[in-house]
């Protein structure tokens, strides 16, 4: 493939939205209130809309007849490059919100920078997504505050979720080979430069929500290399079910 780095770079971004969108979609009809149900579905809907833009572009770059659906649904587990954070399960509402919050703060900073990409398609996609993601961040942050400040039980649950998910945050700022190549060309975002600000604002926001910033410096990584947690296989089994069972059909 001529633009292999660009292709891999796009997949690295899009897989986060794909897997997180799938997780949020699981909740549809099962939320704690009707309003949160609608909001979570809406976030899922935004993320899948973003996925479509990225994968349509990736399919064009690949130029080998594959479609957005082939890219989304017909890769092997090791070929998904999403961060481990995005695939973590909906253990309870605090985990759902914690995962969303820790990703949104990163996602918003990332898209803000991606708007400056020299690749006009990526910058246009980022321009559209940044509006959606700033709403996601407002929603998840509001809930982190509600749960952190609400009752003793909710504070404990929210703190536990943040503590458990914290180990997956560092990976957000790791660079892959495709990342480095795209940064050098002025197409990609240098995520290492987002790290300091990320931890600073997350800490401040957690404090505002009466939560403690975890002190642990032990982090997990591997998603960007396709080495995932055990959760991903089951998620993919659902995501790929129709395409695998009924290959080469139109829907």
């Amino acid at each position: 493939m001529k633009n292999e780095n660009l292709y891999n770079y796009i997949l690295g971004i899009a897989d986060n939205s794909l897997i997180l969108g799938q997780r949020m979609g699981e909740l549809c009809g099962h939320g704690p209130t009707l309003e949160t149900d609608i909001a979570c579905t809406n976030i899922s809907l935004d993320l899948f809309g973003q996925v479509r833009s990225y994968f349509q572009y990736a399919a064009k770059i690949a130029g080998d007849g594959r479609t957005e659906d082939d890219i989304a649904m017909l890769r092997k587990e090791r070929d998904y490059k999403n961060v481990l954070l995005s695939e973590q399960p909906n253990t309870n509402f605090a985990y759902t919100i914690g995962r969303q919050f820790l990703f949104d703060v990163y996602h918003l900073a990332f898209l803000t920078e991606l708007q400056k990409s020299s690749d006009l398609t990526l910058s246009a996609i980022a321009n559209k997504c940044v509006k959606e993601v700033s709403y996601h961040e407002r929603f998840s942050l509001d809930w982190v505050k509600r749960l952190g400040d609400g009752t003793e039980e909710s504070n404990q649950k929210m703190q536990e979720a943040i503590n458990d998910l914290w180990t997956y945050t560092d990976e957000l700022f790791h660079q892959t080979g495709a990342d480095k190549a795209m940064v050098a060309e002025g197409v990609g975002v240098d995520v290492t430069k987002l790290k300091e600000n990320y931890y600073k604002s997350v800490s401040e926001l957690l404090e505002e929500a009466r939560l403690k910033t975890p002190e642990s410096k032990w982090f997990q990584k591997g998603g960007k290399q396709g080495i995932h947690t055990e959760h991903l296989g089951y998620l993919l089994a659902d995501l790929q079910y129709m395409q695998r069972t009924y290959p080469n059909m139109e829907w």
Binding site: P32, T33, T36, F93, K145, R146, L147, D149, G150, T151, E153, S154, K157
Partner: peptide, 9 residues
């Protein structure tokens, strides 16, 4: 517990 937290907050 989520609704209780929202009310308490």
């Amino acid at each position: 517990w989520v609704r209780d937290a929202a009310m308490a907050h």
